[in-house]
């Protein structure tokens, strides 16, 4: 390849990369800057006179605050715990016990996972939750999310479990541990990294979902943050951009905090296999 052609190719490549990166970076930059501006604007610019007034009005909105710091937390943490617990136990049995049609079952899970939470299933899910008397309850929302996210969670966890050598468990048993002790002392610590991944993934998924709580919940005091964003719209249906952006910035903080906490406390590292 001759030199001018090479240089041109590199330049072309960098231009492309910059365009793509900008497309992703601009909305984030806007999210960081817009809440501090006095005027509503969709342009990305450093506010000339930064202000916290937007946050003050957001904090004064009791409905939105309750949605963010109570309802969203209940629903996301609830679904996270339930999904992680059930996925871990299911994946463990699926990876350790031989059943006829086991692999088929796992692939069916993946297939169903894309159907259950899809919009196509919205009406049956609504009817089901209605018949169960769980409309307008946190439990209903948590159960629907759990049902929807569990298949993928099980699939990921099963892969993780299968990479753990069985000899860890066998040695625990031979060393005199009961099955429960083996699970508590050996299996659980070794699967913790996988559980962390599933937990965070589930939390983020529930945290960011709008449609399911919007359909299943009626009373304002149970709405999560995703639906509460609507309280910063005018009656005419246009968003008050300053307030929406301030609320959105608060909205991402718990996810960020959760990630940092888990990374600090446990780290996302994997323990090695035989020789690490």
């Amino acid at each position: 390849m001759n030199l001018p052609k090479y240089v041109l190719a590199r330049i072309g490549f960098y231009v492309f990369v910059v365009i793509v990166a900008t497309a992703f970076a601009l909305p984030l930059l806007w999210l960081l800057l817009a809440p501090f501006g006095r005027q509503a604007t969709l342009a990305v610019r450093i506010p000339s006179e930064p202000t916290l007034a937007n946050f003050v009005s957001v904090f004064r909105n009791a409905f939105a605050m309750r949605a963010l710091f109570v309802n969203s937390i209940i629903q996301a943490v609830g679904a996270m715990l339930l999904i992680t617990a059930v996925a871990t136990l299911t994946a463990y049995s699926l990876s350790r016990i031989r059943l006829p049609g086991r692999d088929m079952f796992v692939y069916m899970l993946i297939l169903f996972s894309s159907v259950v939470t899809g919009s196509a299933a919205m009406v049956p899910i609504f009817l089901l939750i209605f018949e169960l008397g769980l409309i307008d309850s946190h439990t209903g929302v948590i159960l629907v999310f759990t049902g929807g996210l569990l298949p993928v969670a099980i699939f990921i966890m099963r892969d993780f479990m299968q990479s753990l050598p069985k000899s860890y468990e066998e040695s625990a048993l031979v060393n005199g541990a009961s099955t429960l002790q083996m699970l508590r002392h050996v299996v659980l610590p070794l699967t913790r990294p996988g559980m962390m991944v599933i937990g965070i993934w589930a939390f983020v998924n529930v945290w960011g979902s709008f449609l399911i709580p919007f359909i299943l919940l009626r009373s304002p005091d149970r709405m999560p943050a995703a639906t509460a964003t609507y309280s910063f719209y005018t009656e005419a249906g246009t968003p008050v951009i300053t307030l929406v952006s301030a609320y959105a910035l608060l909205y991402i903080l718990p996810v960020l905090a959760l990630y940092l906490f888990v990374n600090w406390r446990y780290g996302f590292q994997f323990f090695g296999g035989i020789k690490s």
Partner: peptide
């Protein structure tokens, strides 16, 4: 055990 199975 062949792979020692030490708890990592």
């Amino acid at each position: 055990f062949q792979d020692y199975a030490l708890y990592p």
